[in-house]
Design a protein around this nucleic acid. Structure first.
Lengths: 225, 225
DNA sequence: AGAACACTTACAGATGATGTAAGGAAAGTT
DNA sequence: AACTTTCCTTACATCATCTGTAAGTGTTCT
């Protein structure tokens, strides 16, 4: 779960925020020492910073600026002053989003979720040699074409690509598909293999999956010059 | 479609690459003047750079370094020297991926597609007030919960969120759902609306959609303090 | 009260995912 | 060569989901 740093001096407001975040399953960390926020953040490595503007000592704007210069973010600015001027100023200094207090719980969470997703590192595609595969959506890419695999096809192909160049045993695949290697439904696995092969053929990917008789399957290497 | 800059001195190889890329639907641009590659790139704004290491004049490594320093990328390095040393060197200077010549057409395309997706700007979620919506997958987020909408539900909610705070007429929604505003299937639209409302309720999002009698629908504002 | 509009629910067809079953092909064994 | 084991393919049935149709109910306006 994401870690969120809460930089807010008003203790009531801070507790309120922490409460909302923790109930939502976030790992919320309160920052109450405003002297060296940047250094604290560096070790904390939060996934998101909730930053109040009105702080004793350095203003939120300054902190925002220095956090951004260190590549720390995303930053969601909190302020009770709902003047457009401030908003522009804040965004200009690098805040990624902006929220005025008091704010609705749902609205706060929606903004946070939004920012987290926007800054979430896009998971790398799995490189299968002559194709690539999005491990989350099971979308198969070859050149500029793409195809959405069914769940079973995706699981099998992902397993093969991740284990490449080793052979993946039937019991392993069985476990991946049905969560058990005790009872191997060889037939069902076989049928799903056939389906996957047919789907691969639709993208011009012939002969990707090599059968190792008695051992299992593996992705065919494409490396030979 | 993505624009790809091909920086390669060997004319045969360059034509080959251009051919592959163009047949795949990419907008391929050949760079043959190696003096001021960075400046050319800046105006070209390619989505990806195919960069050969062995260039007359400045080495591919140097170009790679300066391109990266300008934030231009992703860069896919091409080389005929398949020594690990070079690879490490190249990646260290900022190349995002690395390919040895000669290379398989499919492998080249897979790598390109991979890089393009990795560096693709993640589309922002649509902010619906107390929820957010991924306009591509029609995934609905509220706090840390999420829900996958059906196509029709997604289209309607997206339209409402994008037009917010304006009212979206039934004929507009009809056009969005079925590509025509000539014949409004009011009943079907109504049913889909009901389904969407029920789905929203599953996430605790009550009363999001406001009916403007005789005009259409709109997202209810959440701004009142 | 009546009419127009909005909402809900139940039903059915279409589609897609997936397991079952049966038969055929290929490879290894005797 | 005949047999056995393993693998592949196809057809079918089931199940879930999506979505439009239809009918009935509720709400608002005049």
């Amino acid at each position: 779960m994401a870690r969120i740093a809460v930089v807010e001096d008003d203790s009531w407001m801070r507790e309120e925020l922490m409460d909302i975040l923790q109930k939502e399953g976030f790992e919320a960390v309160a920052i109450t020492d405003f002297h060296d926020v940047v250094a604290q953040m560096a070790t904390l490595a939060p996934n998101l910073v909730l930053l109040d503007i009105n702080l004793p000592g350095p203003s939120g704007f300054e902190i925002c600026k220095s956090l951004k210069s260190k590549g720390i973010g995303p930053i969601l600015m909190l302020t009770s002053r709902d003047k457009l001027q401030d908003e522009l100023h804040g965004l200009h200094l690098g805040a990624d989003d902006y929220l005025t207090k008091p704010c609705n719980r749902d609205r706060l969470l929606a903004r946070i979720q939004n920012l987290l997703r926007r800054f979430e590192r896009q998971p790398d595609l799995i490189d299968g040699g002559s194709f690539s595969l999005d491990p989350n959506t099971f979308t198969l890419y070859k050149g500029s074409e793409s195809l959405l695999l069914s769940a079973n096809e995706g699981k099998i192909l992902l397993a093969l690509a991740q284990h490449k160049p080793e052979v993946v045993s039937k019991s392993t695949l069985s476990e991946i598909l049905w969560g058990t290697d005790q009872y191997i439904d060889e037939n069902a696995l076989q049928v799903n293999l056939t389906r996957l092969r047919k789907t691969l053929r639709q993208l011009g990917l012939e002969d990707q999956i090599e059968t190792i008789r008695g051992k299992g399957y593996r992705l065919r290497g494409q490396e030979k010059p």
